[in-house]
Nucleic acid binder design. Structure first.
Length: 360
RNA sequence: GUCCCCAUCGUCUAGCCUGGCCUAGGACGCCGGCCUUUCAAGCCGGCAACACGGGUUCGAAUCCCGUUGGGGACA
């Protein structure tokens, strides 16, 4: 059983699997509203979105494999959208893709696959599953620039033995080459995208539509507490953000902290964004030893930020203190911290709060 | 209400004294693009001002006069 988003990667995955002799059953999860309508209107194959149903159907037909669309909008709403909106409203910076894989995409594919008696579940993610000490572990892709293990760290350990990532260690040019050989409109398969369920505007307008009370103006302050401007609502800012503040002081200002209690947003210079520690909660661990004692790992705090050496110190059953060897920029509550040992994913969790470095 | 200062891009300003190198520079903001399965960040590019009216001069943001609009221990 293969999750087919309609993008290049899962399409090529479908190709590879059929070549390998599998009887592929393609599944496209309909996660949000009918994208087909907007697609038809724009006369393109797709606009944005993880799930371009029409294109997935086209690829499946082309490869002669079964294709099915499964409506998962309810689960997506409950597991991803609600988390997303409430996270922003409370001043955090949630990562919907992490949540989607955990609660919708991989979860439902695995459940469905098992219910239907499939031999395994595959997706077009750039990640690998390799054995380590006799157990399957999630690993980074060998394609370092496309590695998506960060988005997958919340999959349940018991799914690992069932999952397959056919394009997991391919390089982009290869994938495109295969896609073109398949006759896929390569230029229409552009992969860059923003949040899949935000089809117009940005996440801010989405949050505001879903939660009108998010628009609640408050004050911008500098580190000394001086008022230097007015903001639209804490939901619209994230630590480390520079643009969109509208505060011109002659020096670049970055969001330092979002304070829900006072509805204020503290601004300051970039250097003040560096932190050595953070607390991570809501853990999903593949290697239990992490919960036992201090562990040296590499921690990745954002998808586009390289992992960095750190020590994990368990603080309570579902909480760990991460001490970074070198300070990290803008650790943002709500984002995920993923722990690695080399390419192997040990687990990860949600950044909860931070300890500002004491002045040296 | 006499006298004295000040008046440049959205913001803060460089330039004015020693007129031409100013088709007015910078910073921050803003806009667009790139990047990107989150949000950010980063990179590239772009828009945008000499308060107004007269003069002097070959030539004025730069000098002079006035108008308007802001600020100052006389009232």
């Amino acid at each position: 059983m293969l999750g087919m988003s309609g993008g290049v990667d899962s399409s090529v995955a479908a190709l590879l699997l059929t070549e390998q002799g599998y009887r592929v059953h393609g599944i496209t999860l309909q996660v949000w509203e009918h994208e087909d309508e907007t697609v038809a209107r724009s006369k393109r194959w797709q606009e944005r979105g993880c799930c371009k149903i029409g294109l997935a159907r086209h690829v499946a037909k082309r490869l002669g494999i079964v294709h099915e669309v499964v409506d998962t909008r309810e689960a997506f709403r409950a597991g991803v959208i609600d988390d997303f909106v409430s996270g922003y409203v409370s001043g955090a910076t949630p990562n919907p893709c992490v949540r989607c894989n955990e609660r919708v995409k991989l979860r439902l594919l695995c459940e469905l696959g098992r219910a239907r008696g499939a031999d395994g579940v595959a997706t077009g993610h750039y990640a690998r599953i390799l054995p380590h000490e006799g157990r399957p572990y999630l690993h980074r892709s060998t394609n370092a620039t496309k590695d998506q293990s960060y988005f997958l760290y919340r999959v349940k350990p018991e799914w690992l033995s069932y999952l397959h990532f056919p394009v997991g260690d391919m390089q982009k040019p290869e994938v495109y080459a295969r896609a073109e050989a398949l006759g896929l409109p390569a230029d229409e398969l552009k992969e860059s995208q923003e949040i899949c369920f935000v089809s117009e505007g940005n996440y801010r307008s989405f949050v505001e539509r879903e939660a009108p009370h998010a628009r609640r103006p408050g004050l911008f302050q500098d580190e000394t507490g001086r008022t230097i401007g007015q903001h639209d609502g804490i939901a619209f800012y994230t630590r480390g953000q520079r643009r969109g503040l509208g505060v011109a002081t002659g020096r670049r200002l970055y969001v330092q902290t979002v304070v829900p209690e006072t509805n204020t947003v503290v601004l300051g210079p970039e250097e003040a964004l560096l932190q050595h520690e953070c607390v991570v909660t809501d853990l999903n661990l593949f290697d239990d030893r992490i919960a036992d004692g201090p562990a040296d790992v590499e921690a990745k705090v954002r998808y586009a930020t390289p992992s960095s050496p750190a020590t994990l110190e368990p603080a309570s059953p579902d909480r760990v203190l991460v001490r970074f060897r070198s300070p990290q920029r803008a650790l943002s509550p709500g984002q995920s911290a993923v722990f690695y040992c080399g390419d192997r994913v040990l687990g990860g969790g949600i950044i909860h709060e931070d300890f500002r470095d004491l002045p040296a």
